[in-house]
Design a binder for these strands. Structure first.
Lengths: 253, 253
DNA sequence: CGGTCTCTTGACCTCTGTCAAGTAGAGTGG
DNA sequence: CCACTCTACTTGACAGAGGTCAAGAGACCG
């Protein structure tokens, strides 16, 4: 794999990737898995940069990311943009809207994306009927929170080089949770400007940082595209530990 | 944790502050409120800086913050500390432990605190029996996530002066949600070092920033203690908007 | 009254931001 | 196949916010 826009199966089991995501941290009996795959949905394709949910708006459905990447962003009064979360294939994008009517941030497609739009009604019925699914969904939300805390540490306390290396490690680890095969390398689908908004830096400084990382062989750039070249080296630079991702870690009770 | 010999109390007066916190964003019928106040708990007092939950550890109870302040913190490999959340009276501190067994961060008392320790068993029973309570708890978790995203914006994209002003506004707004009277002024119970770890800055620069804010009359310092002097001025400096706190905003469905 | 902790301040340094010009691909149209 | 254009990337020179170091001053405490 390593191809971020790898086409998904179109045999009617599109939601299987959501099940796979939930299984990466929660246990789900077969019946619950089937109930998830039986959710009603409509598929929608959006081009890069199109808006999925606007800050302040309301929706009556939750999107599941079937393929491609998306992100949450916020703007400061001075016009600065901060990307506050990155969503990878299999992630539910907006479960929050089931509980909080107004969006506190905007949600946008990073690449071309395919979404499965699941009506709130169907979600509410499923969560009420199947506690194990409800639990898995809560765990998913909690893990997103944990990732957010790691990002606060990353942006607040690590320098540019370490910060970028840490993010790239996280990206690979997260993709591996839903990937068919183990990923060691990857073409990163972010522009330097997006990377800058993600890391709390400027595009110019991202450029310098990537150049430095390329110099150490951690990263490669071919035809303006960023590739992970040496994941172990990146992990070493960032002192990366994946504990905060809580893989297979949700059997408390 | 969990004093083995401390008697479990069912004195609802103490948990009323938790009910008040939940009511600040969710609707709860009287029966649900009573069920919350009927939760069994033991009271525990900790001094400033004592640890409530250590990173990597497991617990069998969730703490509710009855009085005082607490915080979540993470350490980077280089030794930097980042405070990733601040908890105020009425906040549940560790609901996450109901769903994720290992703590991904540490939880510490900022001031002297009083905690109500509620056993997981009792929580699970309550959440299973009372969907409205479960819903309110999920909303509480989601709002903490929203605050975390605002912090990412704050640390990633605002300069020191604006950043500190924004945090102080948030603090006052959050305290007002459980306060008896409207707060306009406040003695901030944080050392400059803690403020630095909160803001992703150094103590020295916090000192300079506070001096500047004092110069504009936004803040006052008497006997080394920081006070909010002019909340409107702070809100203006930070272009503060409280939408992300989702006050009285949880009637989706 | 000495010890300790936090705050304060100045001098200096460096990481990251700003500005501005230039380059390389990808796409478009002739 | 070649301009032309657009966008993203690249680079250098310079600026500045914030970090580092170090010394001193107030508080608080036993």
């Amino acid at each position: 794999m390593g191809e971020p826009h790898a086409p998904e199966r179109r045999d009617g089991h599109l939601l299987r990737i959501l099940v796979k995501k939930l299984l990466s941290h929660s246990l789900l009996p077969a019946e619950d898995r089937q109930a998830i795959e039986a959710l009603p949905f409509t598929v929608r394709t959006l081009e890069a940069n199109e808006s999925i949910v606007r800050e302040g708006s309301r929706t009556d459905s939750c999107a599941i990311l079937l393929s491609g990447f998306a992100f949450r962003a916020k703007l400061s009064a001075e016009g600065g943009r901060q990307i506050v979360a990155l969503k990878t294939p299999g992630d539910p994008l907006d479960l929050q809207s089931l509980f909080l009517p107004t969006a506190d941030h905007s949600l946008q497609a990073l690449t071309r994306v395919e979404l499965a739009l699941v009506p709130h009604r169907a979600w509410n019925a499923l969560l009420a009927a199947r506690p194990a699914v409800a639990r898995a969904v809560v765990v998913d939300v909690l893990i997103e929170g944990s990732i957010g805390r790691e990002w606060l540490l990353n942006i607040g306390r690590r320098d540019a080089r370490t910060r970028v290396a840490h993010f790239l490690c996280e990206l690979v680890h997260r993709l591996n949770r839903v990937a068919l095969d183990r990923i060691e390398t990857l073409e990163v689908p972010l522009t330097q400007e997006q990377l800058a908004d993600l890391m709390g830096l400027t595009p110019v400084h991202i450029n310098r940082t990537l150049k430095a990382l390329e110099g150490e062989g951690a990263v490669a750039r071919v035809a303006r595209r960023l590739h992970i070249a040496d994941l172990d080296r990146l992990a070493e630079i960032a002192s990366f530990s994946s504990l905060y991702l809580h893989g297979h870690d949700a059997q408390a009770g």
